[in-house]
Simulated scan of single mutants.
Amino acid sequence: MAEQYGFYVDTSRCIKCWACQVACKQWHGIKANTVARREVKETVEGTFPNVKRKFESLSCMHCEKPACFGACPQGAIEKRADDGIVTVNLEKCIGDKSCAEACPFDVPEFIERDGKTVMDKCDTCLSIGRNEDGNPHCVAACPLQALHFGPLAEMAKLAAEKGGKQMEGETVPSVYVS
């Protein structure tokens, strides 16, 4: 593989405005109350009056060795050699949900498309084209620049500057958070 790409989420900047989620749905033509390719999650630590809230905008982790890839009986899930992005070949997908069972991050969701059920997940806007800067539309929509996309080494550097780290998981996610 040439160079793995991934995301960095700066939780000190994310305010849970959902602009990334809305942009994703809008650009991909995803109807409300259906699948969510990107989701802002909230964690709360501490007790009153010392409560800390943290927001993370997460999607497919584009793992180093994706469990979904190995679980797909049709070989519909692919990891691109040039950037490590995990994609779904909808022509091959039979919607049996084995990928969802295998994913440790509970990412794959399923939609009806052309009369059949298929897996749906973030493809970093490869299917619709990224913005003029080469970013997925969720990154471009973030008003506080809390969401970043690029070569994993650059995401690691951004995270390190904020005391962040790579998300943990047995499949080695391509996402850093601080």
Rank of each mutant, 00 (worst) to 15 (best):
A2F: 11
A2D: 08
Q4T: 15
T11H: 13
T11L: 12
C14M: 05
C17M: 09
C17H: 02
W18A: 14
W18Q: 14
Q21K: 11
Q21V: 15
A23Q: 06
C24H: 13
K25Y: 04
K25Q: 10
W27N: 15
G29D: 09
N33R: 09
T34F: 07
R37Q: 08
R37E: 00
V40W: 04
E42D: 04
E45Y: 12
G46T: 09
K52P: 00
F55P: 02
E56Q: 14
L58P: 06
L58N: 05
S59A: 14
H62M: 01
P66R: 11
A67E: 09
G70W: 06
A71W: 02
C72E: 03
C72K: 11
P73N: 04
E78S: 06
K79D: 01
R80V: 01
A81W: 00
G84I: 05
I85L: 12
T87I: 15
N89W: 05
L90N: 03
E91C: 01
I94F: 05
S98A: 14
A102P: 01
A102Q: 00
C103S: 07
P104V: 11
E112K: 14
V118T: 09
D120F: 15
K121E: 07
C122W: 07
T124D: 13
G129K: 14
R130L: 02
E132V: 15
D133K: 15
A140E: 06
P143K: 04
A146N: 06
L147R: 03
H148W: 15
G150H: 13
G150E: 02
P151N: 03
L152P: 06
L158E: 10
G163Y: 13
Q166I: 13
Q166H: 03
M167C: 09
E170P: 15
E170C: 07
V175S: 01
S178K: 14
S178W: 11
